[in-house]
Design a protein around this nucleic acid. Structure first.
Length: 881
RNA sequence: GGGCGCGUAGCUCAGUUGGUUAGAGCGCCUGCCUUACAAGCAGGAUGUCCGCGGUUCGAGUCCGUGCGCGCCCACCA
C-alpha cells in the first residue's frame, strides 16, 4: 500500500465530500430501524456565503450527527435555506440600482421573477460551500422556505392563528424603516446609544378664555420636529409646579394650534422640565398616552420620512432638515430656551442601518402571550431542555415579557399575506385557497393584502414544515419532534422562541427535545466579525490552506458551551500538526505492514497479550467512555480533546513506541498486528465525528472486505466495554511510564549523552519491581538506561538519583551536573515539606477526621506515607551529593 | 433602567455535583535530524486561580461585596 509522505488534505477532501453527497449515504429512511436522531439545520440565508459562524455551527452539528449515526440511530439532518425577505430583496434591488432600475420600474410580478432568477443563479452558493466542507446532511431532503410545501404550511398557520383569534390587523405604533419602506419587528430594530440633545421649548399657555397669557410651559424633547404633531402637553398630577395650569390649553408654537394640558405619568417631574409634549403619532409612549386621553393623532412624518401636509410650512422637508428648520424658527421666534447635550438610544434598521421612524401604521400582529405561555410551560416541565443554563434564563425572561409581533412587511419577496379586503363591505377574508368572493357579503370585489410576512414567520415553522406538514407524512411521524437544535444565541428570540410557540400550537408538541446554544466566532480582539469591520475570515480559504479537518478540530476543541471563540489563525498549525500526526502514524503502520508482507485489513477480533496491548485497549475503552459521555452532554470540546490526547499521547507516544520494539517477534506477528490494527481502526472511528475526511481516507485504505460498511461514517462508534476495563494493565503501565520518565529526566538533568546507554540501579518493591523486571528491555530502549534491579528500597542512594512513591532510581554517571540535581532536589524537598505539613495538619484535625468521607482520609494517609518516603529519599540523595 | 456572563501560566483557554502537590495548546529554555512524523521526539521553567469578606473539616469551584471587562433586552421625553 502506497502512502504519500506528506499530509496533504487537499488531495482527498474534495473527493470524499463529493462521494458523500453523490452516494446519498446520509439519506434518511423513516422505515429503517433504530431510535431516531433528527435535527434540522438553522437555515442560512440564500443570500449568504459561508462565514466562520456557519463553519462553527455546521462543524458542531456535523460532529453530533456523525456521532449519533455511528451509534446506530435512525438519523436525519435536514438542510435548507431561508428566503430572507429583506436581505434578499435588498441584494437584488442593489443589483438593479446599478442598471438604474427600481423595483417599481419592473412591477411586482417581474420583480419577483427577477429575485427567483437571482436565487437560481447565486442562491446556491452557500449550499455548494457546505457540501465542500463535507457536512453530512441529507441533501435529498433539502428545503427552501419558499418551496410550495413550506408556503402551504405558512398559509395554514396564518389561517389557523387567525381563526384562533391570535392574529389581528390594527393601527399601531411600529418601527418603520424609511429606506426599506417597511415595518420592522422590535427584534429587527437595533438600538445604539448616541449623542443627541435635549431641547427645551416654551409653549405659551392660553388663559381660560382662550386668549394669550404671559405664562409658559417649557417642554423638553429630543425630537423637536415631531412637535408639529403634538396634540397635548402633559404634566404630572403630583407636580405642584404646574398643577394650577391643568385644564388650560397651550398654543403650539410655529403652527399656532391650541392643544390641551393633560395630567399623565408620562411626565416625570424629575426629568427635563417635568413637562412633556405628546405626539401620539410618532412616539410609542405618546401613542399610549394618546389612547388614554383620547387624543387625536396627527401624522406629520410620512413613510418616506418627509413631513406630511399636516406639517404646514414644513411639508415636504426631510425629517432631519425639518428638525433644523424647526429649531431655527423656534430660536428666531424666541421659543427655544435651552439646548442640553443628551445621550439617547436610536433605533436603526438591522439590515440597512437607517434610523427607524416610529409611526402609526396598519399592520398584522400576532398576539404572542397565549403562545408564549405554552412554550414557557414546555421548558419548565422539561419537554424541551435548553442549555447552557444561562440561555434558559434569558429565554424565560424574554418569553415572560413578550410583546405582540408585527408580522407584516411591505416587501415583495416573501409569503404573501392570505388576506383579502372587500371593496363592497370592507370586511377581511382570510383563506387557505385564494377566494373569489367575500366571505361576509359575497362580493367579488376582493383585493389581496399587498404585504408579505416577516421572514421569521416561515422559519418558525421550519421543524415541521420541512417534514411535509400540513400533510401527515411518514417523515413527520418519524422525525418530529426533532431531537436536538443547535444554534447561536443571537437567534434565540428570533427563531428558537417562535419555533417553540408555533410548534406547540400547531403540532401540539415541542419542535425539539434539546436546544444547545453556542457562542459566536469573534476576531482575535474579541470583536464581532462583520463585513463592514473587515475582520471576517473566509472558512474556505482557511480550509484549503490547513485542511477542513484541522479547521474543524481547532473549532471543536475551542467551543466551550456558553462562551464565544476568539479566532486567531495560530490555533490552526496545532490542529494541522495533529492531523499530520495521524497521517504519519498511519504511514508508519502501512510501511511496516508492507515490510512484513501484511495486506492492510480490519481485524475481526484481537486478544491483547502484552502489557502495552492490554493497556491501549483499556485506554481506548476509557477514551470511548469519555467521548460518549461528553457527546451525550453536548460537550464537544471535551470529546475532541479526549480524542486528541488518546491518539497522540497514548496511541503514538507510548503504544507505538513500545510495540515497534516487537516488530521482529515473528512468533507473535499475527497477534501483534491484529491488536495494532484493531486499535488503530477503532481510533479512526473514535475520531471520525471530529475529523471525517482524514479518518475516511485512512479507513478506506484498511477496508478489506465488502462485509464492512461502505464508509467509516456508517461504522459503529466505539462504546465502553466492561470487559476491556483493565485496571491492572493501567496500573502497571503507569509504573512503567513513571520509571521511563524518571530515567529520561535524570539523564537529561545530568547532561548525559542521549545516545549513550547508561547503567543504573532501580530499587523497587512489589508490582513496581515486577514491572521493571518484565519490561527491562522497553526501559532500556525508551529511556536509554540499563538498570540493575533490586527488590527492596532500603539502599543508600549514592549518586544522581530520583525517587518517587514507587521506586528509587540511581544512575551510574559521574556527577557531571550535580548542580542541576541539587537544584531539583531542593525544590522537590521544599514542595514535599509544604505538602506534608499541609497534609499532616489536616490529618491532625479532629473536625476533619470527624466530617470528611473515609476514602478521602484514607487516600490522604496513603499519600502522606508516600510523601514522607520520597522526602527521606531526597534528603539522603542531597546529602550524598 | 433591567437581565446574563467573564476575570486561572507571557497568550488563548480547560477545570460536571466543593476533596488528596491546579491542567492543555501556543510561546519560552535545554538536548536530540532515534530508519512515521523537526508540522517531530525527550526533558524543563512559569500561577497571591482579580481584591476583600463569609459558609465549610476543606473553596479555583458555593454565598456576599468591591474593581475591571463583555454581551443581551428595554419606548423614558
Amino acid at each position: 500500500m502506497q502512502i504519500e509522505k506528506v499530509y496533504e488534505p487537499q488531495r482527498f477532501e474534495s473527493r470524499w465530500a463529493a462521494w458523500w453527497v453523490e452516494s446519498s449515504l446520509y439519506a434518511a429512511n423513516p422505515q429503517a430501524p433504530g431510535e431516531v436522531f433528527s435535527l434540522c439545520i438553522p437555515p442560512p440565508n440564500v443570500t449568504g456565503s459561508l462565514h466562520m459562524g456557519h463553519m462553527l455551527e455546521h462543524t458542531m452539528i456535523d460532529m453530533v450527527v456523525r456521532y449519533y449515526r455511528m451509534t446506530g440511530r435512525n438519523t436525519l439532518w435536514l438542510p435548507g435555506t431561508d428566503h430572507a425577505g429583506i436581505a434578499t430583496q435588498m441584494v437584488v434591488e442593489r443589483q438593479m440600482a446599478k442598471e438604474g432600475l427600481t423595483k417599481h420600474d419592473l412591477g411586482r410580478e417581474k420583480f419577483e421573477e427577477r429575485v427567483w432568477k437571482w436565487k437560481a443563479e447565486s442562491g446556491g452558493a452557500i449550499v455548494h460551500q457546505m457540501k465542500t466542507v463535507g457536512v453530512s446532511c441529507d441533501w435529498t431532503r433539502e428545503r427552501f422556505t419558499l418551496d410550495p410545501g413550506l408556503s402551504r404550511a405558512v398559509r395554514e398557520v396564518f389561517c389557523g392563528l387567525y381563526e384562533r383569534g391570535l392574529l389581528y390587523r390594527g393601527e399601531r405604533m411600529v418601527n418603520w424603516c424609511p429606506r426599506c419602506a417597511t415595518a420592522l419587528s422590535d427584534l429587527e430594530t437595533k438600538h445604539e446609544e448616541s449623542d443627541g440633545s435635549l431641547w427645551e421649548i416654551r409653549y405659551p399657555v392660553l388663559s381660560s378664555d382662550g386668549q394669550a397669557s404671559d405664562e409658559f410651559l417649557t417642554v423638553a424633547t429630543t425630537r423637536p420636529e415631531t412637535m408639529l404633531g403634538d396634540t397635548a402637553v402633559a404634566i404630572n398630577a403630583k407636580d405642584e409646579r404646574y398643577l394650577h395650569l391643568h385644564g388650560r390649553q397651550v398654543l403650539l408654537p410655529l403652527l399656532d394650534r391650541a392643544i390641551p394640558i393633560i395630567l399623565d405619568d408620562l411626565a416625570d417631574p424629575a426629568f427635563g422640565t417635568g413637562v412633556v409634549k405628546v405626539t401620539p403619532s410618532h412616539d410609542p409612549n405618546d401613542f399610549e398616552a394618546g389612547q388614554r386621553h383620547n387624543l387625536p393623532q396627527i401624522k406629520v412624518i410620512g413613510e418616506d420620512a418627509k413631513i406630511t401636509a399636516a406639517g404646514g410650512p414644513y411639508a415636504g422637508l426631510d425629517r432631519f432638515d425639518a428638525r433644523k428648520q424647526v429649531l431655527a424658527d423656534l430660536e428666531q421666534r424666541g421659543y427655544l430656551v435651552k439646548t442640553n447635550p443628551h445621550k439617547l438610544s436610536i433605533g436603526r434598521c438591522e439590515r440597512c442601518q437607517t434610523i427607524v421612524e416610529p409611526l402609526v401604521s396598519k399592520q398584522w400582529f400576532a398576539n404572542m402571550k397565549p403562545l408564549a405561555e405554552k412554550a414557557i410551560a414546555a421548558v419548565e416541565d422539561g419537554r424541551t431542555t435548553i442549555e447552557p443554563e444561562q440561555s434558559r434564563t434569558v429565554f424565560f425572561h424574554w418569553m415572560r415579557n413578550i410583546r405582540d409581533w408585527c408580522v407584516s412587511r411591505q416587501l415583495w419577496w416573501g409569503h404573501r399575506i392570505p388576506a383579502w379586503y372587500c371593496g363592497a363591505c370592507g370586511e377581511v377574508t382570510v383563506a387557505r385557497q385564494d377566494p373569489t368572493q367575500c366571505a361576509h357579503c359575497g362580493s367579488a370585489q376582493l383585493t389581496q393584502d399587498p404585504d408579505v410576512l416577516d421572514t421569521w414567520f416561515s422559519s418558525g415553522l421550519w421543524p415541521f414544515s420541512t417534514l411535509g406538514w400540513p400533510d401527515q407524512t411518514a417523515d413527520l411521524a418519524k422525525y418530529y419532534p426533532t431531537t436536538l437544535m443547535i444554534m447561536g444565541y443571537e437567534i434565540l428570540f428570533f427563531w428558537c422562541a417562535r419555533m417553540m410557540m408555533l410548534g406547540l400550537e400547531f403540532m401540539g408538541e415541542v419542535p425539539f427535545r434539546h436546544v444547545h446554544i453556542h457562542g459566536i466566532v469573534r476576531d482575535a480582539q474579541g470583536k464581532k466579525m462583520s463585513k463592514t469591520r473587515g475582520n471576517t475570515v473566509d472558512p474556505l480559504e482557511i480550509t484549503s490552506k490547513y485542511g477542513t479537518d484541522a479547521v474543524r478540530m481547532a473549532l471543536l476543541t475551542a467551543c466551550t458551551p456558553g462562551s464565544d471563540i476568539l479566532w486567531t489563525e495560530d490555533k490552526l498549525p496545532a490542529s494541522r500538526s495533529f492531523a499530520n500526526k495521524i497521517w504519519n502514524a498511519s504511514r508508519f503502520l502501512f510501511l511496516n505492514m508492507e515490510r512484513a508482507g501484511i495486506e492492510p485489513f480490519i481485524p475481526e477480533s484481537a486478544s491483547p497479550q502484552f502489557l502495552e496491548e492490554r493497556w491501549i485497549r483499556a485506554r481506548l475503552n476509557l477514551a470511548a467512555q469519555t467521548c460518549n459521555n461528553a457527546m451525550a452532554a453536548n460537550r464537544y470540546h471535551e470529546a475532541s480533546q479526549t480524542m486528541w490526547h488518546f491518539f497522540w499521547d497514548d496511541f503514538c507516544d507510548w503504544y507505538i513506541e513500545l510495540i515497534k520494539l516487537r516488530f521482529n517477534d515473528e512468533a507473535n506477528r499475527a497477534s501483534i498486528w491484529a491488536n495494532l490494527l484493531s486499535t488503530f481502526e477503532a481510533a479512526l472511528r473514535l475520531l471520525h465525528p471530529a475529523m471525517p475526511f482524514l479518518t475516511e481516507e485512512l479507513w478506506q485504505r484498511l477496508r478489506n472486505s465488502d462485509a464492512h460498511p461502505p464508509s467509516i461514517s456508517l461504522a459503529a462508534y466505539p462504546a465502553f466495554t466492561a470487559a476491556h476495563d483493565d485496571a491492572e494493565a493501567l496500573r502497571h503501565m503507569d509504573l512503567l511510564q513513571e520509571i521511563i520518565t524518571a530515567a529520561r529526566t535524570l539523564k537529561a538533568e545530568m547532561k548525559a549523552d542521549p545516545k549513550a546507554e547508561l547503567a543504573g540501579e532501580l530499587y523497587a518493591e512489589g508490582e513496581a519491581f515486577a514491572v521493571a523486571r518484565d519490561h527491562a528491555e522497553a526501559i532500556r530502549k525508551l529511556a536509554g538506561v540499563d538498570l540493575a534491579l533490586h527488590p527492596q528500597r532500603g539502599a543508600k542512594l549514592e549518586g544522581p538519583s530520583r525517587s518517587t512513591a514507587a521506586f528509587d532510581l540511581l544512575l551510574k554517571v559521574p556527577a557531571a551536573n550535580a548542580e542541576a540535581q541539587r537544584k531539583r532536589l531542593e525544590k522537590e524537598i521544599a514542595d514535599l515539606e509544604k505538602v506534608i505539613a499541609n497534609t499532616s495538619r489536616q490529618l491532625g484535625d479532629e473536625k476533619f477526621l470527624g466530617k470528611a468521607p473515609p476514602h478521602i482520609i484514607e487516600g490522604m494517609k496513603a499519600k502522606l506515607a508516600d510523601y514522607e518516603l520520597q522526602l527521606s529519599k531526597n534528603r539522603e540523595a542531597i546529602h550524598a551529593l
